[in-house]
Amino acid sequence: LGPKYVGLWDFKSRTDEELSFRAGDVFHVARKEEQWWWATLLDEAGGAVAQGYVPHNYLAERE
C-alpha cells in the first residue's frame, strides 16, 4: 500500500468530501492533489475506517 502517514494536528472537516481526524491518527494516502490528499483513515489493526480529503500539511510520513 505504500507509506503510511500520521496526523500532526486535529482537523475538522468543512465539507462532505473532507475527513475529520485527530492528531496521531494513521492514514494511507491514495492520491496527492496539490493542497488536498485523498486518504483512508486506518484503525489500529490497519483496517479502513473512512475516506476523504485531508490537508497535506496536516500529515507527516510515518517512519
Rank of each mutant, 00 (worst) to 15 (best):
R62S: 14
G2E: 15
E61I: 15
S13R: 09
D10T: 06
A45H: 14
E34S: 13
Q51F: 09
K12P: 05
A60Y: 10
S13N: 07
E17Y: 12
H28V: 14
T40Y: 13
A48I: 14
L59R: 02
E61Q: 11
K12M: 13
W9Q: 08
A50K: 10
P55N: 06
P3W: 09
E17A: 12
K32N: 06
A45G: 11
E61W: 08
E63I: 13
E34L: 10
N57D: 12
F11Y: 15
R62G: 11
T40R: 04
G52M: 03
G24M: 04
N57P: 02
H56M: 13
W38D: 00
E17H: 12
N57Y: 11
G24T: 02
G47A: 14
F27H: 00
L42H: 03
W9T: 06
Q51L: 05
D10Y: 08
F11T: 01
R14F: 08
R62Q: 15
D16T: 10
R14N: 13
V54Y: 03
R22D: 04
A30K: 10
A48K: 07
D25K: 03
W38T: 01
L19V: 06
K4Y: 15
L8D: 02
Y53G: 01
T15H: 11
H28K: 07
L41G: 00
L19G: 01
H28Y: 15
K4H: 14
L1V: 12
E17G: 12
G24D: 02
A50L: 07
Q51G: 04
E33H: 10
V54T: 00
G24V: 02
E61D: 08
D16E: 12
E33R: 06
K32T: 09
V26H: 08
G2L: 14
S20R: 02
P3A: 12
A60V: 15
V26K: 07
D16V: 10
L19K: 00
W9E: 05
A23S: 07
L19C: 04
A45S: 13
A45C: 14
A39M: 03
H56A: 15
A45E: 13
E18L: 10
A48C: 09
L59S: 01
V29L: 03
A39L: 03
G2I: 14
W9R: 13
D43H: 03
N57I: 07
Y5H: 04
Y58N: 02
E61F: 09
V54W: 04
Q35A: 12
L41S: 01
E18R: 07
G52Y: 03
T40F: 13
W36K: 09
F27R: 00
Q51T: 14
A50V: 06
E33A: 08
T40A: 06
T40N: 04
D10N: 07
D43E: 01
P3F: 10
G24H: 03
E44I: 08
Y58G: 05
V49I: 12
H28C: 10
T15C: 15
L19W: 04
V29C: 05
F11P: 02
G47R: 15
Q51R: 07
V26I: 14
W38C: 07
R14C: 12
F11A: 01
D16G: 11
V26P: 02
E61L: 15
E33Y: 12
V29N: 01
D10A: 06
Q35M: 13
G47Q: 15
L8W: 06
Y53T: 03
G2F: 14
E17R: 13
E34Q: 11
Y5G: 01
V49C: 06
W37P: 00
E33M: 09
F27I: 04
Q35V: 11
W38E: 00
E18I: 10
L42T: 03
S20K: 03
E61M: 13
W37T: 01
E63A: 12
W36V: 07
F21E: 00
E34H: 11
E63F: 11
A39F: 04
W36T: 05
V29G: 01
P55R: 07
P3I: 14
E44C: 11
K32V: 05
A23F: 03
K4C: 14
W37Q: 00
K32H: 05
F27V: 02
G47P: 02
T15Q: 09
E44G: 10
W38K: 00
K12W: 12
F27D: 00
W36F: 12
A50I: 06
V49A: 06
G2H: 13
S20D: 07
F11H: 07
E33I: 06
V29K: 00
V29E: 02
V29Y: 04
P55L: 07
K4W: 13
N57V: 06
R22E: 07
Y53A: 02
K4V: 15
L1F: 13
H28R: 10
E18Y: 13
L41K: 10
L59H: 03
P55E: 05
A48Q: 10
T15Y: 09
K12T: 15
A39R: 02
N57W: 14
F21Y: 02
P55S: 05
F27P: 00
R22Q: 10
L1I: 12
V6T: 06
D25P: 01
R22H: 11
D16A: 14
E63H: 12
F11E: 02
R62D: 12
R22Y: 09
F21R: 00
P3N: 10
W37A: 03
H56F: 13
D25A: 09
S13C: 08
L42Y: 06
V54D: 01
W9V: 08
E61C: 09
H56W: 14
D10F: 11
A45W: 14
R31L: 07
D10M: 06
D25I: 08
F11Q: 02
F11I: 00
K32Q: 07
Y58T: 03
W38N: 00
N57S: 09
D10C: 11
A39H: 00
V49R: 08
A60L: 10
V49T: 06
A48S: 10
Y53P: 01
F21A: 00
F11G: 02
L1H: 13
G47I: 14
E44P: 10
V49F: 06
A60W: 09
L8E: 03
F27W: 04
T15R: 14
G7F: 07
R22G: 04
A23M: 08
K4S: 10
R14Y: 08
L59Y: 04
R62C: 15
D25C: 07
L42E: 03
V6N: 02
A30M: 15
F21W: 01
D43N: 10
G7S: 14
F11L: 02
E61V: 14
Q51K: 06
E33C: 15
E33T: 09
R14K: 11
F27M: 09
G7A: 15
R31F: 12
G24K: 03
R31H: 09
G7R: 00
P55K: 05
A23H: 05
R62Y: 15
K12N: 14
A39I: 04
P55V: 06
Q35W: 13
F11R: 06
